[in-house]
Design a protein around this nucleic acid. Structure first.
Length: 286
DNA sequence: AAGTCGTGGAT
DNA sequence: TATCCAAGACT
């Protein structure tokens, strides 16, 4: 089978096995798609479902979000992680409201210019919200193509030009946007990073990686978390989120309960300089 | 271009 | 229990 036929097989598989995710439904707005893409950056689908629903009830449009202080966005972000994504989503909503008439752009370059929107997210919004034929290269698509076409497990680091060319070559003439979600879904459900379910894969007989005996890829450098600055920031942020809206706390309260006081204080200062935390007369607040 | 930036479920 | 890692972006 050539690439076009394989893409068709994957698309057909997708139509039978796709999860019913709310941001994929026909009634999802471009803004809803955009919010989902921000929330899904490095965060699993299962943890995004509920916050996404609540977010869109509260802020159904970019203008609605832009009308509130960024601290409310950070608070509503809850425990999704990487709270700067909330900050950037708020900033992007502000730009959309001020310079795009309140409508999420469909042009990838305009999307890419928004805060928090990189190559992947720009392509994903253009593709999933507007049906554009863009190369959507997320970790799932990279893994599927690396295995199926490259015969190797997913590479580390940023996508190379060659990898991007390969992905572009796989983009079918028709139904390009569906191919992209389908490849992502295959990577998420079947062609998983850990214990891939090759018997369930619709293109297993064409997979170079499977034929090669599923050789292991490069080991990622392990990222530890406990005791790191990020963990300290997480502690401070959690304390801030626990505050009622509009209330503040002093540094001692926020830093309390963390074993390394100097580290926690530094974390608070870094959050301040990042704009994720601010001060008022009472103390620190979101 | 390697480091940094959260969080928690699964294994 | 420790490790992995999930629809990345930014510097």
């Amino acid at each position: 089978m050539d690439r076009t036929e394989l893409a068709t097989v994957v698309i057909d598989w997708y139509h039978r096995h796709a999860r019913d995710l709310p941001w994929r439904r026909a009634d999802a707005s471009p803004w809803g798609v955009m919010v989902s893409e921000f929330m899904l950056q490095q965060t699993p689908v299962a943890r995004v479902l509920q916050p996404w629903q609540q977010w869109l009830v509260r802020w159904p449009t970019p203008a609605a979000l832009a009308a509130e202080p960024v601290g409310e966005a950070v608070r509503a972000w809850g425990r999704l992680g990487y709270p700067r994504r909330a900050q950037r989503l708020h900033a992007a909503a502000t730009v959309i409201t001020g310079r795009h008439g309140g409508r999420v752009p469909s042009d990838p370059d305009e999307l890419r210019a928004l805060p928090g929107v990189g190559d992947y997210t720009a392509a994903a919004i253009a593709s999933f919200a507007y049906g554009a034929a863009e190369v959507v290269l997320d970790v799932n698509v990279r893994r599927v193509l690396a295995r199926l076409d490259g015969g190797a497990d997913a590479p580390l680091g940023a996508p190379t030009a060659a990898e991007r060319r390969r992905a572009a070559a796989w983009l079918p003439e028709r139904h390009a946007a569906v191919w992209s979600v389908a490849a992502m879904e295959l990577g998420a459900q079947v062609c998983r990073s850990a214990r891939p379910d090759c018997p369930a894969c619709p293109v297993a007989t064409s997979c170079r990686w499977l034929a090669a005996g599923r050789p292991p890829g490069p080991a990622r450098p392990r990222q530890l978390y406990a005791g790191t600055d990020r963990a300290a920031r997480g502690h401070v942020l959690a304390a801030l989120r626990a505050l009622p809206t509009g209330r503040s706390a002093d540094a001692a309260t926020l830093v309390g309960g963390w074993p390394d006081q100097a580290q926690a204080s530094a974390a608070l200062q870094s959050l301040l300089s990042d704009g994720l935390v601010r001060t008022d007369r009472e103390g620190y607040t979101l």
